[in-house]
Amino acid sequence: MTTPQTEHHDGTSDATPGGYDTERRPGELGFALLMLVGSAVLLWSAYGISGFQALSAPGSVPMATTAVMVIAALIVTLKTARLTLVSGETLARDILPGVVLIFLALLVGYALLLKPLGFLPTSALFLTGAIKILGRRGWGFTLGVALGSLVLIWLVFRIVFSVLMPAGIVPEAEFIQFFRTLIGGQG
């Protein structure tokens, strides 16, 4: 393979964003409308910061930028509305296929469980589930790769960089202290 697959406009690289010049993708108009509404809400919110009080007011730059957003979003929406829908693409197959939806659900689940359950159990569940679904390999492979890489990440972030992810139900700190005592001879 010598050429990158830029012809399939899925936006794989940032430099070659997805979308087409002459046709619109499923959901593109909806997204543009959402952006327009969002920009308008932000503009209203920016106006609420300080109104037209002074050039140096905290709301001046936010108002200017959100105004630009509204105008740009409006142009994009109008342009998109005039394009014809691309044939052969559907929202369910090309934009949000099942596997993407599953992963979105996994990520939401991760976000919800992270605090109550703690970093280690949540990540173990996430990695195992994700690798199992994508890889369709045996449990031995899945668990080995998932837990192995989790331990590696944990060692780097928790021990070397002392990033204290939420401990949740695992008494991490006591565990580490135990090993410190074991190695150092004293606490």
Binding site: P171, A173, E174, F175, I176, Q177, F178, G187
Partner: peptide, 17 residues
Amino acid sequence: ALVVTVSAASAQDYPTK
């Protein structure tokens, strides 16, 4: 280690972690 922390997490040993 777990047992110790659960049963005797009194301030006497502070800090245990």
